[in-house]
Design a protein around this nucleic acid. Structure first.
Length: 557
RNA sequence: GCGCCCGUAGCUCAGCGGAUAGAGCAUCGGUCUUCGGAACCGAGGGUCGGGGGUUCGAAUCCCUCCGGGCGCGCCA
């Protein structure tokens, strides 16, 4: 099912064309119809300021109201269109036809689980990479926010007809891993009875001691290197492997799963992506040598400064690795679009990464980097500090154990990425009407309850005539359901998943209002069947939004 | 100092250049002998941080100031 709005916009565009052919509208380039949903019901279901914008394009003397009249007069007929009015300075207000609205209930039931699907992607391939936190410790609430955004965006893009792959980039190389290995090895040596001091700037958490103990329990002292020798890679590898497993299971708890996990180390294989990417940059003339280091000449691409690719000591920077990684995404695996989701602390990395992609000869428009602002954890009024010091870390796992995946996802989703958010543990776990999470899920459970009751009483949605649905609350519910395809389209374009929880609330409200106004199962068998069909459709729509958000749709609560 | 983000109701937040700026919670007042009351209806509550500008029209775009967050590494 395509969205109604798209169809109406096409009608308006056609109307302008016809009116221009007829000479009643000046032959200027017509602005897009841009139908919006008016705040006030008397302005109809959809409104367009097309005539106002057209008047501006047509220049002085053009009368918006007259243009609106001309457009409306040339509007092709369509079963969805009820009344069309011209209002105010020249708005065109469209009211949907009630028989058509009612008929959409059957269309939604026919679409079933696929209701809301669009064909915007036309099979194009998109990669969504998110979280990708260093495997040097457990992931925290901030990472959880990225995980929820990423997995939800992936779900929406899938619904929009893209071939989506989700990926976690495992930073298992580089200087942070060296530091991690050194810290872990120090603990390990102590367990083996050797004196050792963890690096002063090393990883301080208690989990490091536990990791060392685990490795010691499994391997005894056999990983010990000669005194004074550098920490063995094996120690770091084992630590990383364990932490990646933990990260994987913590994220699974949040209902986040990945299609693939990509190792940074693998970039450095002989003749691997790193070498290939660097060679390409050389060939394209974007590499310079200076002060003993190798630089990407990003100033040639409009950046404020150049960036180091290879340090004076010969080791590649994180930036260089990331370039090789994106070389693989675009030039080897051939994704049409890549979405990277990073925390606000990576803001500075955005523009140089875009420049690097440009340097690789890839249109930077194909890289969409989303930055989300950081999370403040609260317990009621009290701010829970997220210091990196040991003991102060609140892990994602702890939050999940406390509030559950559904509430966690809903809370993270309801704020836009651009706003710093407070995550109130107390509010999130409160199972009451103060909590919007349950408001939405309750609507679904309530529907399931009604359908159970109906079955017990022998009422059935089969052969119900949806044209009996005439009550304002019934039609309001249908209107609300019909905006789901539009929502999928909008989130696909804007990549702003916070629109989903807001829509879910409105849909639930429309259902609760219908339930209060209209008795579903009654003595009137025909009406009961029709309303059961509406109820069934509402369940489909609610389950779909909940599904897109990665939330459960409970039969009972 | 420079860059990015934010500032909207008591609180947490929506608001796609358009019509009288919305929701949830909180507060106050109502609804229900029947399908799930974790519900429904209503009320109060706003200098959209301040000031300029563009526009027929600005919470939205531009400039500037104030306040807050995050960056500005041969860290990741």
């Amino acid at each position: 099912m395509a969205g109604v709005r798209d169809e109406l916009e096409a009608l308006l565009t056609e109307a302008v064309r016809r009116a221009q052919e007829g000479g009643v509208v000046p032959p200027v380039a017509a602005p897009p119809p841009q139908l919006e949903r008016p705040q006030r019901p008397e302005h109809g279901d959809y409104a367009s300021s097309l005539a106002l914008r057209l008047a501006r394009a047509a220049g002085r003397g053009a009368n918006p109201q007259a243009l609106a009249r001309a457009i409306v007069d040339h509007l092709p007929a369509h079963p969805a269109v009820g009344a069309v009015e011209i209002a105010g300075p020249g708005f065109i207000n469209v009211r949907l036809a009630e028989p058509w609205l009612a008929s959409q209930v059957d269309a939604i039931i026919a679409a079933g689980e696929r209701f809301g699907d669009q064909d915007l992607g036309r099979g194009r391939r998109v990669q969504v990479e998110f979280v990708s936190a260093n495997p040097t410790g457990p992931i925290h609430v901030g990472n959880g926010r990225g995980a929820v955004f990423g997995s939800t965006i992936a779900a929406v893009l899938r619904a929009a007809g893209y071939r989506v792959e989700t990926e976690y980039y495992v930073n298992d190389g580089g200087s942070q891993i060296a530091l991690f290995t050194a810290t872990l090895y120090a603990h390990y040596q102590r367990l083996c009875g050797r004196e050792a001091e963890p690096p002063a700037e090393g990883y301080a958490g208690e989990y490091m001691r536990e990791l060392a103990a685990r490795i010691h329990a499994e391997q005894g002292a056999q990983l010990l290197a000669p005194p004074g020798a550098s920490p063995p890679d094996e120690i770091g590898l084992r630590g990383v492997r364990t932490l990646v497993d933990q990260i994987r299971s913590d994220l699974a708890e949040l209902r986040v799963r990945y299609d693939s996990w990509y190792s940074e180390r693998s970039l450095y294989a002989p003749e691997g992506r790193y070498e290939q990417a660097m060679r390409l940059l050389h060939e394209r003339g974007y590499v310079t040598e200076r002060e003993g280091a190798t630089w990407l000449a990003s100033t040639q691409l409009g950046e404020d400064k150049d960036n180091v690719l290879v340090r004076r000591d010969g080791s590649p920077t994180y930036f260089a690795a990331d370039i090789a990684y994106h070389y693989d995404k675009f030039l080897v695996r051939g994704f049409d679009t890549v979405v990277d989701i990073w925390g606000a602390d990576h803001q500075g990395h955005v523009s140089r990464m875009r420049a690097a992609v440009d340097a690789l000869g890839v249109d930077p428009e194909r890289l969409r980097v989303l930055i989300y602002q950081l999370v403040t954890l609260k317990r009621g009024q009290e701010v829970v500090r997220l210091s990196k010091r040991a003991g102060d870390i609140i892990t994602l796992r702890e939050v999940l154990d406390e509030v559950g995946a559904d509430a966690c996802r809903f809370f993270f989703l309801s704020r836009s990425m651009d706003s710093q958010m407070d995550f109130d543990l107390e509010l999130a776990k409160r199972q009451s009407n103060e909590n919007p999470v349950y408001y939405v899920q309750y609507a679904h459970a309530r529907i399931a309850g009604i359908l159970r009751t109906a079955a017990e009483r022998g009422a059935t949605p089969d052969r119900g005539d949806v044209q009996l649905l005439r009550h304002p609350a019934e039609l309001a519910l249908v209107r609300e359901m019909l905006t789901l395809p539009e929502l999928v389209e909008r989130v696909t374009q804007t990549l702003e998943p916070h629109l989903l929880p807001h829509y879910a609330m409105e849909l639930a409200t429309a259902f609760h209002a219908f339930y209060t106004e209209c008795r579903v199962v009654s003595e009137d068998a025909a009406l009961s069947s029709a309303r059961l069909r509406l109820t069934l459709a509402a369940r489909i729509a609610l389950a779909r939004v909940l599904g897109l958000m990665g939330m459960s749709a409970p039969e009972r609560m």
